[in-house]
């Protein structure tokens, strides 16, 4: 988060401004996500009850995905290279765990050895791997 009006400020003041801008940005993003999630949830319930047409969920989901993609891009553009690397490590490990677990479980299921893959369990384990990897990187155990 480069502060363009930071000429003449000390490095520590610039860092403080940078941190403040970061948390302000995160606050806004969380607020917008909360409002969008609440509105989306209410609309989804209304669609299930038949109050609003079900097709409303398609553009709603599309808009949410576009917003998520834009925020992710913008966020990764703002953070410094170390945090970007931490995020890349975490998402890569999360994806690999998801991919490996899903494929293995599916193959075992096809062989008649296990029940079908539990999507929620696979997603949960992948997210856990992602969070643990991010924590491991943040604590600089690498």
């Amino acid at each position: 988060m480069t502060d363009t009006n930071s000429a003449g400020l000390s490095g520590e003041e610039r860092l403080k401004n940078r941190r403040r801008a970061y948390w302000k940005y995160i606050g806004w993003a969380m607020g917008i996500a909360f409002v969008a999630g609440t509105v989306g949830g209410v609309l989804a319930i209304l669609a299930v009850k038949g109050v609003v047409p079900a097709w409303v969920l398609y553009p709603l989901t599309g808009a949410a995905l576009i917003a998520f993609a834009w925020f992710s891009y913008d966020y990764f553009r703002r953070i410094d290279e170390l945090d970007l690397l931490d995020n890349l490590w975490a998402t890569t490990v999360g994806f690999y765990v998801y991919f490996a677990l899903e494929i293995c479980w599916l193959l075992f299921n096809r062989a008649g050895l296990t029940p079908p893959p539990d999507d929620i369990a696979v997603l949960g384990i992948s997210m856990l791997a992602l969070v643990l990897t991010y924590g491991w990187r943040k604590l600089r155990w690498n």
Partner: peptide, 28 residues
């Protein structure tokens, strides 16, 4: 200079400076 001072001048986090100084991160 403190790590925070250097971080601010380079527009990176203090953690990035610490990681570079301790050899845990090679800068781009």
């Amino acid at each position: 200079w403190s790590q925070a001072e250097l971080a601010g001048q380079l527009d990176v986090s203090r953690q990035a400076i610490n990681a570079i100084e301790t050899g845990k991160h090679d800068p781009s």
